[in-house]
Design a protein around this nucleic acid. Structure first.
Lengths: 151, 151
DNA sequence: ACAAATCCCGAGTGTTTTTATAAGATATAA
DNA sequence: TTATATCTTATAAAAACACTCGGGATTTGT
């Protein structure tokens, strides 16, 4: 159905939350889960993949938690999605990673459609970084207070 | 996983098959299913939806079958996908049809990402019609015979 | 009139994916 | 040493997916 699963959505929310709390030391899963309204145990599984991919770093023990693995302008939304949902692939025959080879691939007209869909999704997701999101959030916030001012 | 289900893929294949056999009278499900390698009974379910949406017309009885409901340049791939897979909606909060209203929608930064994804998918799918596919197929075929000629 | 071809409709079914939940092991700060 | 966290693995309910099946309705050709 061309739908994102909760993995991707929760993952992006969690990463954005981490970005918003940069410079405050490690952020615990518990606090992320509470702020974002996500099951802590479930988030645990998701962040495990993000850690293995180097998108976050973990600090164990009391007062521990997670930190971004890179600068926010180096983390694309596409990176997060690919870790949590696998390669972008509206169909198996046009997967970003080892596409299922089909004998008719060369002459297949439908295949070219799915390629275009894949590329347009990838282009959007790779054009947005956590930094972009932080800037967007700041902009929305300032517009919001401007509006409040004039009431 | 941002994946298309077989419904959408089979549906587009079947519609393209119908387009390729225009002017030859009604095309039976059986022949479409055979050519495209799809279960006939399953395809029956899918085409039922396409008929109700007016994308195909049916002719009952012996020698019956299906015909395109409109000219091929009037049938967008997006139309077919929406009938078979529902509105384009990478997440429920940005569905093309009655999006799930969320209290934070106005300030939600992730939401704007999913909107962009939705729009880019819709743009691709609505820019391609069955006519486009017929032209692409003809082009590929002529390139293929040209290549054969030079061997 | 009858048989064959074909569309039409709804119910049932096995598999996979999704979305968690739970329990316990490991590590560290205070 | 205790409380706070991360880490790992197992279990499982629910939903979606991809068919499968059976029978009914309609039309054509003999």
């Amino acid at each position: 159905m061309l739908k994102l699963s909760t993995k991707g959505r929760y993952g992006v929310k969690a990463m954005f939350d981490l970005a918003q709390h940069m410079g405050e030391g490690p952020t615990s899963l518990k606090s992320i889960a509470e702020r974002q309204g996500i099951s802590e145990h479930y988030l645990e599984q998701l962040i495990s993949g993000l850690r293995k991919a180097g998108l976050v770093k973990s600090v164990r023990g009391a007062q521990g938690g997670y930190l971004l693995g890179k600068e926010p302008d180096k983390i694309k939304i596409g990176d997060i999605i690919r870790v949590l949902e696998g390669p972008i692939a509206p169909t198996d025959c046009v997967s970003e990673e080892d596409p299922e080879t089909c004998a008719k691939a060369q002459y297949c007209v439908t295949r070219t459609i799915w390629e275009k869909v894949r590329d347009s999704i990838a282009e959007v997701l790779d054009s947005i970084t956590l930094q972009t999101m932080l800037e967007d959030a700041k902009k929305i916030e300032s517009e919001r207070s401007l509006y409040m001012y004039y009431i």
